[in-house]
């Protein structure tokens, strides 16, 4: 960009859903905008763009984060997984089936964020009770379902995983 010799773009190299990616990104671009517009991974949604809704949830270096509160430039060297990658690997399959069975989505806008957040909860705590599930999902907004069905689905997926073990 500028008078001071700063660049308006940054070169990044990272791993997205298991694939190495190199790109040049505008320094102002958020990670989720780059994933959607640069890579065509439109499973991560963009709601509020300031951290409150959780629709943009992605997994960065193994941990869920807000894709709208990271810059794409900060992804250099990172390992990123989006809902597309989590779906392809099958690691969220039980949750996806439970969401389907319980009608835990209507428009589906919040669903990728809900599923990635719930998957992290169940990986850390295999048998959360309902208040704990609600607490873990407290950072993800759903404007359609009223949440009960989502909590049902996560509880079902947890029970299913415990039975399978």
């Amino acid at each position: 960009m500028s008078d001071q010799g700063f660049e308006a773009t940054a070169a990044i190299a990272c791993t997205v859903n298991g694939e190495p990616v190199r790109a040049t990104v505008p320094v102002r671009q958020s990670l989720v905008d780059w994933l959607r517009h640069g890579l065509g991974l439109t499973g991560s949604h963009v709601g509020c763009e300031h951290g409150v809704c959780g629709a943009c949830t992605v997994v960065v270096d193994g941990r869920t984060m807000r894709g709208c509160l990271l810059l794409a430039a900060q992804a250099d060297g990172a390992v990123i997984e989006t809902i597309e990658g989590a779906t392809a690997s099958g690691r969220v399959e039980a949750l996806q089936e439970a969401f389907h069975a319980r009608a835990a989505l209507q428009c589906g806008f919040c669903t990728p964020g809900m599923v990635l957040t719930a998957a992290e909860l169940l990986a850390d705590e295999p048998s959360p009770d309902r208040p704990r599930i609600r607490e873990a999902l407290s950072g993800n907004y759903c404007r359609c379902t009223g949440y009960h069905a989502i909590v049902d689905a996560v509880a079902d997926a947890a029970a299913h995983a415990v039975r399978e073990r």
Binding site: R63, R66, L69, G139, N140
Partner: peptide, 8 residues
């Protein structure tokens, strides 16, 4: 905040 925010 929430877990995803606490991670960062």
């Amino acid at each position: 905040a929430h877990q995803a925010i606490r991670h960062r």
